[in-house]
Design a protein around this nucleic acid. Structure first.
Lengths: 225, 225, 225, 225
DNA sequence: AGCTAAGCGAGACGGTACGTCAAGTCTTTCA
DNA sequence: TGAAAGACTTGACGTACCGTCTCGCTTAGCT
């Protein structure tokens, strides 16, 4: 009825040898926006305006009317470039977050992955983490938006973690036979759970504790720092 | 900005020795509905109507107008008993699901927990799993509803898992020092991730694989079946 | 495809003995607005606001948004009371014009009818005559609005002329066998023609000339002043 | 505020001795379309496409986009040849109707004029009569279009009737001193009234009755068949 | 047993946002 | 150079659902 189908990452080349291909077929929901010089200008104006609105007032402030006005663009145009409000917001959020999280490099597999979990936990606990939760929520009812969120935000995040995992595999720290997607979902699913439900804190200690549990299940005992 | 605070379970009795008390202070959002005979009738009528609507058309069909009409109750009354639409839906969903998942009893700790994961995965993949996702999403923007969702649905689920964990602790299968909340979130967070994002399947195999990873991190090697 | 069916006058009693019953069956398009104290207040507020807008900027200024805002009423409410923008405007215009044209009383049939034609011609030539034309035009595409225009504006006008005609009949000035509707349409159709097409002036002389032609065809030669 | 000024017929030649020159000054609204071979092809393509659309779905189907697409012409080009949508539609309608009504020739003045009224009444009652009403309505808000409607449709109609009237004058059937414009407007205004308002039928009997009334006012008693 | 006050059904209402439509203008690209 | 293609702005439309409000009836619970 309302399954999402969020992820269809562009898979841009051999940087990531590990397979993170989505198991579900790629939806054709991402609109090909009109081409041309004007289109490019509009595209960036809209995304900047949306990002600003998201920062200032969260998803609920990023109304189509508000975006249109702030970007100096008409609503009709918005709907010609994106299939829904969620899609605009998702793409804007993705670009805004593009290089927010630095790739950790501690020298050890456990260290890298733990630090990544800490970064994400911190992000979730921030204001933008709230926006992230709102977007996840919005995507539940809007598969079209979900495709954008997968493409422009989630794919990048997953690729980053997949790269860390690939390093661990190279180092011989990974427990054999463990799927990278299981690693990612186990490491960050718990954080997402807490972000959405809010039943448990998202503190650094809590994150470290969760990372420890998850890494014990995925790395070899010898890899534990 | 928009953290939820979903869980404030009533913790009714000593069945669960392990601590799953929420770390965040309990919100006072749950309304005390008017008392009296009529109130009881209204309460159950509304919840049944809402449950039926949720089953038939998901959260989006459970409009306040629709609920009011189906229950033969006025909207004003609805708002006297519950703070918001989400709250009604959450409570109705909780009661509807009250005894949907049987408590597994395989004889081993790993078996019990794995089976629980399989059950939940199956539930997520069902139509009602979609409704669950919608409710999670709705709660992101409505803390009041979130309180109801925590109280009437999540608390029960977590308590059930906590009991399985307590058994594992008694059996000496649990890795010492592991927090029960970390266990729960790690075991089910990954499933929730997949439910919401839909990037990976929710099949039995996938669930078993995730359970395996998570249990390796929480149970002692000696407990692995 | 787009015939109107404008007129369904209430026919309020024996004042007018002559038959001006519409030949087309009465449409059921006029909405029964919600009842109650609030409704009454809203009704009058809306109609006053609309009348003001019509006076100030014609039909094109009487937007639903503008009306809603000026009347301090929500658009949804407007659509609960009236089926369309045209309907609101038509009713407001009707009430606004209710007693704009005095009933002539010159002592002779020809005098009365001629004076009426002059009045109407003058009205057509005024700003409000323009609004009248706009309403006629709007009703062409909106049968629901047409019903309101018939009920709240045209019916009254026709009844007024019908009364003059009835007097002429009593006086023995009317050519026998002439239908009152033919009289009305012949007397005023030419004016309407000129209002809409604008090919010929709506001056007093022109109106007198038209009235003369039409009355020669409807009154007996003996009645001509 | 919104008077139209529809009629500015080119008056091309002595065929009509009677004066039907408009009393209002001729507006300069009719665009001189670009000249050249391509222009001619475009012109006819557009007008044919528009006529087809008008026939199929009335004025509301004759969108500028629809016309442009059907004619294989760009919208910019449309606006280079005509000042507005109404103008295109009006011209297309005029050409489409060019020889729809045959000129009656019954041998008597009254017969000719009555038959013309019957023809027009029949036309009004047809689907194309509805389109005619829509065009009249559209012209109310668009003087530029009105000019085209006058030039390419109304002028021809009026000239035809004027010719009948000229014949009556030659025959000595016309009441002396009656203006041809008064004749035309009186004869057909009533029909237009009924077309637009729809309060009375447009049947042949009704038309005959109206013609009778009007002709009694314009022809001499001796001319009545 | 009857009265009073609260609870309640019905549904009108304001508000906010949505997604859509068509007119008319402007820009790019092709012939 | 002029036109096709079509992107864009503008302004309004009609709809959806939330949560509040008002009315008048019903019922509970006290006197």
């Amino acid at each position: 009825m309302l399954r999402c189908g969020l992820l269809d990452e562009p898979q841009k080349g051999g940087t990531v040898p590990v397979d993170i291909t989505p198991a579900v077929p790629e939806p054709e929901t991402i609109v090909a926006p009109p081409r041309g010089l004007r289109s490019d200008r509009i595209h960036s104006q809209v995304l900047e305006a949306t990002a600003a609105l998201l920062r200032e007032g969260g998803y609920s402030a990023a109304t189509m009317d508000a975006i249109a006005q702030r970007a100096g663009v008409s609503k009709v145009t918005l709907y010609k470039h994106w299939p829904s409000r969620t899609a605009v917001a998702a793409k804007a959020f993705g670009l805004m977050m593009a290089d927010a999280l630095p790739q950790p490099n501690t020298g050890t597999s456990a260290g890298d992955l733990t630090e990544q979990v800490l970064h994400v936990s911190e992000f979730y606990a921030s204001d933008l983490g709230g926006v992230f939760a709102q977007l996840i929520a919005a995507c539940v009812e809007d598969p079209a938006g979900a495709a954008y969120f997968g493409e422009f935000f989630l794919a990048g995040r997953r690729a980053a973690v997949a790269e860390l995992w690939a390093r661990a595999v190279e180092r011989g720290d990974a427990r054999p036979g463990v799927d990278v997607n299981d690693v990612i979902d186990t490491l960050f699913g718990a954080l997402l759970f807490r972000l959405l439900i809010g039943h448990q804190p998202l503190s650094a200690e809590a994150a470290a504790s969760l990372a420890d549990v998850a890494l014990r299940g995925t790395l070899l005992p010898t890899a534990k720092g």
